[in-house]
Every structure is written in structure tokens, then in C-alpha cells.
Amino acid sequence: MSRTTEMVLGILGGLIGFGGAFFALFVGSLDEALNGSSELSGLGSSAFLFSATAIIGAIIVKFKAKLGGWIMLISGVAILVSISLFGVVPALLLIPAGLMGIIRKPKTEKMAA
């Protein structure tokens, strides 16, 4: 069964997650330069790792749909938790893609008699 929808949504969510993670890292480093310490840099780093994991899950969903779906679902929730506002759009792409990978059943073809 073709899982192109899940793969495209996962890759887009991962790439937009990279953008949110880089922006969180930028704001965190700016805050650290001005105030001396910032938690946002660490959270941006974790979002960067989860974005990479989401892209890996999007590739895996072509071969093992449930495993790739779980990876994308967990990555979407983790990105949303780690960088909250910066991670809303990637989460909106990754969570449905992950659920589609987990729930969607392959179509059964009827034999012509």
C-alpha cells in the first residue's frame, strides 16, 4: 500500500520542525547573551533531534507503517512539548501523519471470479 501521504506530511513536519528548532536556538542564545542563562537553548536542541527523528520515521513508514507512525507521533508530541509555540505547525503535520500510519489498514483486493 502506498504511504505517500504519511511520508510527505512527515517530511514536511520534520523540515518545519527544523525551522522552529533553529528559531528556538536563536532566541535561546540571544536570551543567554542578554540574561546569562536560558533553558530555551536546550529545548531547541531536543526539538532539533526530534525533527531528525520525525524525518527518519517518515522514511520508515513506507516499509513498516506502524513503526514509522509511532515514531512520527512521538516526535510530534515531543516537539510540541519542547518548543511549544514554535512547534505547533510541525505537530499539526506529524501527529495526523503518525495516526494515519498506525490506524490506516491496507486495502484488500477482491479476486475476480
Score class of each variant (00 low, 15 high):
residue 44 G to W: 05
residue 97 A to Q: 07
residue 64 K to M: 13
residue 3 R to C: 04
residue 61 V to Y: 05
residue 90 P to W: 14
residue 18 F to M: 11
residue 35 N to K: 07
residue 84 S to K: 12
residue 53 T to W: 05
residue 28 G to Q: 09
residue 82 S to K: 00
residue 101 G to L: 02
residue 89 V to T: 10
residue 5 T to G: 11
residue 2 S to Q: 11
residue 94 L to Y: 07
residue 31 D to H: 14
residue 46 S to D: 12
residue 111 M to D: 12
residue 27 V to L: 10
residue 93 L to K: 08
residue 46 S to I: 09
residue 10 G to E: 03
residue 67 L to I: 13
residue 69 G to H: 11
residue 113 A to W: 08
residue 50 F to M: 15
residue 99 L to G: 10
residue 87 G to N: 02
residue 95 I to R: 02
residue 95 I to Q: 02
residue 104 R to V: 15
residue 71 I to A: 01
residue 78 A to F: 08
residue 46 S to W: 10
residue 104 R to A: 10
residue 36 G to K: 09
residue 24 A to Q: 13
residue 105 K to M: 13
residue 55 I to L: 05
residue 92 L to M: 15
residue 50 F to S: 05
residue 68 G to W: 04
residue 43 L to I: 06
residue 48 F to Y: 08
residue 24 A to V: 13
residue 30 L to E: 04
residue 13 G to S: 03
residue 69 G to N: 05
residue 40 L to V: 09
residue 103 I to E: 06
residue 19 G to H: 01
residue 43 L to N: 06
residue 66 K to R: 14
residue 59 I to C: 11
residue 97 A to C: 06
residue 24 A to C: 13
residue 60 I to M: 07
residue 106 P to K: 10
residue 103 I to M: 03
residue 25 L to V: 11
residue 96 P to Y: 03
residue 68 G to P: 08
residue 66 K to T: 07
residue 108 T to C: 03
residue 71 I to M: 12
residue 99 L to R: 01
residue 72 M to C: 02
residue 100 M to V: 07
residue 10 G to I: 09
residue 46 S to M: 09
residue 74 I to K: 02
residue 7 M to R: 12
residue 11 I to A: 08
residue 27 V to A: 04
residue 14 G to E: 04
residue 42 G to L: 12
residue 99 L to C: 08
residue 63 F to W: 06
residue 73 L to I: 10
residue 29 S to M: 08
residue 81 V to C: 02
residue 14 G to Y: 14
residue 107 K to R: 11
residue 71 I to T: 14
residue 104 R to Y: 09
residue 105 K to D: 02
residue 74 I to Q: 00
residue 74 I to W: 06
residue 101 G to T: 05
residue 24 A to N: 13
residue 34 L to C: 00
residue 82 S to V: 05
residue 109 E to N: 03
residue 52 A to G: 14
residue 10 G to Q: 06
residue 16 I to S: 10
residue 34 L to R: 14
residue 28 G to V: 08
residue 42 G to N: 08
residue 59 I to V: 15
residue 55 I to V: 15
residue 109 E to G: 04
residue 34 L to T: 10
residue 25 L to P: 02
residue 61 V to H: 03
